[in-house]
């Protein structure tokens, strides 16, 4: 067991290292937008474009050779001293910490809604397969997964924000955190995020639950005279939850770094998705490396936890032979 965990942790570190290296290589191989702009500006103003270029490079710590930069970034990344963001002149950790809050207040509620509603619908439609209710539930879920989230967001903004005036248009970080008003700012972004997530949770839940609906123990339980509800909750829901819960972490990371980005752009939320993307196009190497490193590490460790959960919960699985 210890050997297994140890090996996987080493892998997690190695994978993170690999991803960070790849990211660094990608950045190093790409032209820096800020330098070309600065040089262009200088040439236009009749100043020396080469000096302007050198100044920006200096600012980005790019004056050194690539190897020197690479080594120094790697050392600082793994010694957890992530340094300063080159565009914001602030500690990378504090940039991420600030952005994280805004991601959390939209993504976490959206995920909770998605899990509760998605699992609920999924279970219901698994136990009532091919009924009208199942179709209706599926329809709702499919609506969520199929609607282009960016389009949904702008339509919601137009209808509820502009035409009906029921909700504010963009997010305002100055609203008191614990207030109903704050909620009104979050309704639309959370709705957009949750609609997509509900559908995927529902699908997982339905598929998983279907496996247990006809399992022998379910039949036994039914034969013993348990009510349908009891069967559903104790013999279908419980075993199905284990794999479901473990996909949550991966889901959260996925939402933050994909769906949430679009939502953040449209509603003006300064969350982690938006900040990471800005870091990327502004070639803010320390920030990019940190924002790539975190999700990779989290996902890999989550995978590990998932495997451990399996081995602990299901004695039939032995950890030596299993891969995620």
């Amino acid at each position: 067991m210890a050997w297994f965990v140890g090996r996987r942790l080493v892998w997690a570190l190695f994978a993170t290292f690999l991803v960070v290296t790849l990211t660094f290589a990608l950045l190093a191989a790409s032209p820096n937008p800020e330098t070309s702009q600065a040089a262009w500006q200088a040439a236009q103003d009749g100043s020396d474009p080469e000096e302007a270029r050198a100044l920006v490079d200096q600012q980005h710590g790019a004056g050194d050779s690539l190897t020197t930069q690479y080594v120094s970034y790697m050392v600082s990344m793994f010694s957890l001293d992530w340094g300063q963001s080159t565009t914001y002149n602030e500690d990378v950790t504090s940039v991420i910490a600030n952005a994280w809050v805004y991601s959390a207040i939209t993504v976490i509620p959206a995920t909770i809604i998605a899990v509760v509603v998605g699992f609920g619908i999924g279970l219901y439609s698994a136990t009532h397969q091919y009924t009208t209710a199942d179709y209706a539930a599926t329809l709702v879920a499919f609506f969520g997964v199929s609607i282009p989230n960016f389009w949904f967001a702008i339509v919601l903004m137009l209808v509820f924000g502009e035409l009906l005036g029921l909700t504010p248009i963009s997010y305002d970080s100055e609203v008191p955190f614990w207030s109903l008003e704050h909620l009104s700012y979050l309704v639309l972004p959370i709705t957009v995020l949750a609609t997509a997530a509900v559908a995927s949770e529902m699908r997982y839940a339905r598929a998983e639950a279907l496996e247990y609906v006809s399992a022998t123990w379910t039949k036994t339980a039914r034969a013993k005279g348990l009510s349908e509800t009891a069967v559903t909750i104790r013999h279908v829901f419980r075993p199905a939850t284990v794999p479901l819960v473990t996909i949550l972490v991966a889901d959260l990371v996925g939402i933050i770094f994909a769906t949430a980005y679009v939502v953040e752009v449209i509603f003006g939320i300064p969350g982690l998705g938006y900040v990471s993307y800005q870091a990327l196009v502004r070639m803010d190497t320390p920030l990019v490396l940190a924002t790539t490193l975190i999700p990779v590490f989290v996902t890999i460790v989550a995978n590990l936890c998932q495997d451990l959960a399996y081995t602990v919960l299901d004695p039939r699985i032995d950890y030596e032979g299993r891969s995620p």
Partner: peptide
């Protein structure tokens, strides 16, 4: 000074007096 990266959001805010 608010950063609203999406132009249609800025315009909607201006139209509604935000």
């Amino acid at each position: 000074m608010r950063i609203l990266p999406e132009q249609s959001t800025r315009l909607a805010e201006l139209r509604t007096g935000g």
